[in-house]
Amino acid sequence: MTEITHHLPDWLVRSYATGSLGHAFSLVVAAHVSQCDECRARLEAEELAGGLVLDDLKGMAPSDDLRRRVFDGLDDDDVIVAEQPARAGIYPGAVVEAMGADSPRWRALGGGIKQAILSEDKEGSARLLYIPPGMAVPDHTHGGLELTLVLQGSFSDETGRFGVGDVEVANDDLDHTPIAGMEDVCICLAATDAPLKFKGLLPRLLQPIFRI
């Protein structure tokens, strides 16, 4: 396991634990925690706090019917508990689930860069990015918050170097140019709560087509 140096901010871990985080960001949290014991411990600490609140909660009496349904279900082999798929190569189970396959369906964006959109809803979008060694991801600013988790290789930008398992949290203020490390193709999981905006004219024209 490589050393992870860029972790999730506390509020993201807490938002995930309490269920208030949208799908795209939840995907990044789940994928990061899958490979980071430090953040797994932080998430489980949050859940311990959630359990304390649950323990002290004033409850609502369940119906008698619920009790019957639960106890009838104990010996019912037809009751299936859904399982998230297992990790596949560099992709944590949550990403495999979102891909609906063991590998991404890449679409070329030009310059050897590819992407695979995993989810899009009104709260944001998540996609995988494939960046050949030494290539720059087009310079872009953000309308909201962007989380980028490295799954393979690395990238560097004005704020530092990000290796496998590292997550970059970029907000409105950050105007950055990530460049993939030379050692390998860089594959990232990127999630944002707003459409990305490119600075140059050409990328802006491409934006509606490529949904970057």
Binding site: A17, G19, R40, E47, G50, Q84, G93
Partner: peptide
């Protein structure tokens, strides 16, 4: 050694609630 019963059950409840609300599986850590 890692979770009290209430913490583990709290997580399961959140997972299931979000599966249902969003009509898609909640992303969870491996």
């Amino acid at each position: 050694t890692r979770a009290r019963a209430s913490a583990w059950i709290y997580r399961i409840a959140r997972n299931r609630q979000i599966d249902v609300i969003r009509r898609r599986p909640r992303p969870v850590p491996d």
